[in-house]
Amino acid sequence: MNQTQFIERLPKVELHLHIEGTLEPEMMFSLAQRNNIQLPFATPEAVKAAYEFTNLQSFLDIYYQGANVLIHEQDFYDLTWAYMLHCQQDNVIHTEIFFDPQTHTARGVEFATVVNGIDRALQDAQQQLGITSRLIMCFLRHLDEQSAFETLEQAMPHQDKIIAIGLDSSELGHPPEKFERVFAKAREAGFLTVAHAGEEGPVSNITGSVTLLNVSRVDHGVRCSDDAQLVAELAQMAMPLTVCPLSNTKLKVFAEMEQHNIVELLRQGVKVTINSDDPAYFGGYMNDNFLAVAASHQLTQQELTQFTRNAIEASFISEQEKHALTAQLEEFMRQYFGH
């Protein structure tokens, strides 16, 4: 088995995935047609051609535009189900996905419509595909604190479906302290917390997310390399970083994959994981991200497996469930090295 086959068959766990970011151009068009919505593109090919981004904001502009086609519960179901089929294809055995309710409620779509459609697909995927999952609700950080509080209120009746609260969208100019109070309220209500930090934003956003928002994981976090002491601290406290390699190169966080610091961080003992972020927009799901990293960096099979081990440890599931996922990984390794 060569490196590519090893990666394709390796059991994986995804912890940084925006469900709205899995909206493939073909589905965007079919939903637009179904819901009678005009798109500013003539064909799916024209959408793909627009996916040349210069930075995070240039991506967000088209991302929010694409989300306009999602209106009914079935739309959110279909979107999520299509992603779960990608998981099955890429040997993703567990996934923890983000959704952005404010993107939809601002357009008059009910909170329940969004969460119920996603949740129903996740339940079906567990029963039919054997893939487990958790759901994380993100606040859009470019919106104000009041909007986040209102969104948290809307989430309260759905605590059986939502495990954690996150923070995404434009990082620059929107530091963690802006959401310190709403995160405190979310933790009081029993939600776990995560936050995007240190993608385009400074190192202080990473430390702020850890100290002010009490996050269990930092989403992205790649700018930690700007501060050697912080890297050592993250390794020491076993703070997971959910890193998105193809996203980082597509949005020019790193010019080339060869410059990406994920392997260096792994070898420094930081609990880094590989994830796909917004795969419809950034050119790849989980296997694509693993393959891209492996093509640009010399990695052993043990190191590739460590990404999955890290993700299992960082996941928001019970110890019993973690043992079950680890057993699947060990069985794969036994079969692999047994030959």
Rank of each mutant, 00 (worst) to 15 (best):
C224K: 00
G208V: 01
Y64W: 14
E153D: 14
L152C: 07
E321I: 00
L230C: 10
E150G: 01
K185T: 12
G173L: 06
L291M: 12
I312H: 07
I62P: 12
S170G: 10
I37M: 13
S30Q: 15
G173M: 09
C138V: 10
E180C: 03
R217D: 04
G21L: 06
E233P: 05
I118T: 07
S216R: 13
L325G: 06
P40C: 08
H260M: 06
L251K: 04
A186D: 07
A148M: 03
M237I: 15
T22A: 12
T308M: 10
R217Q: 06
I71L: 14
H174E: 06
Q306V: 02
P157F: 03
E331S: 13
A125Y: 01
T249I: 14
A295R: 14
P157R: 09
R34M: 12
L172Y: 05
M27F: 06
A42P: 00
E331A: 15
Q3K: 15
S204T: 12
G201H: 01
A195Q: 00
A148W: 00
T211E: 15
M84K: 02
E171D: 11
R134D: 08
G108L: 10
L17E: 03
A238W: 03
R9V: 00
V182W: 02
L251S: 08
E330F: 03
L172R: 11
Q268T: 00
R187L: 10
I165V: 12
F191D: 02
H72I: 00
D226H: 14
N68R: 15
A186V: 02
P101V: 01
V47Y: 03
L304S: 11
D78H: 04
I262T: 06
F282Y: 10
M237G: 00
M237N: 12
G198R: 02
E171N: 12
L85M: 13
R181G: 11
H323I: 04
Q57Y: 09
E313D: 15
S58V: 07
H220F: 04
Q3Y: 01
Q127G: 02
T211C: 02
E303L: 05
E14S: 12
Y336A: 06
A155C: 09
H220M: 08
I312F: 09
P157L: 06
E73Q: 15
A197P: 09
I19T: 02
L39Q: 12
E200G: 02
F179D: 04
V253G: 10
E330P: 08
A232P: 13
F307A: 09
E8C: 11
K178Q: 14
I19F: 01
L172I: 15
V263C: 13
V182M: 07
H104K: 07
S225H: 08
L329V: 09
D227K: 08
F332C: 06
N68L: 04
Q123H: 13
R141T: 05
L192D: 10
V210A: 00
L192Q: 12
L70K: 06
L23W: 05
H297S: 10
E321P: 11
A121V: 07
G130Y: 09
S204P: 04
L213H: 05
T132M: 02
S147Y: 01
T326L: 14
M1I: 11
S276Q: 05
N35Q: 12
F98S: 01
S315M: 05
R217P: 11
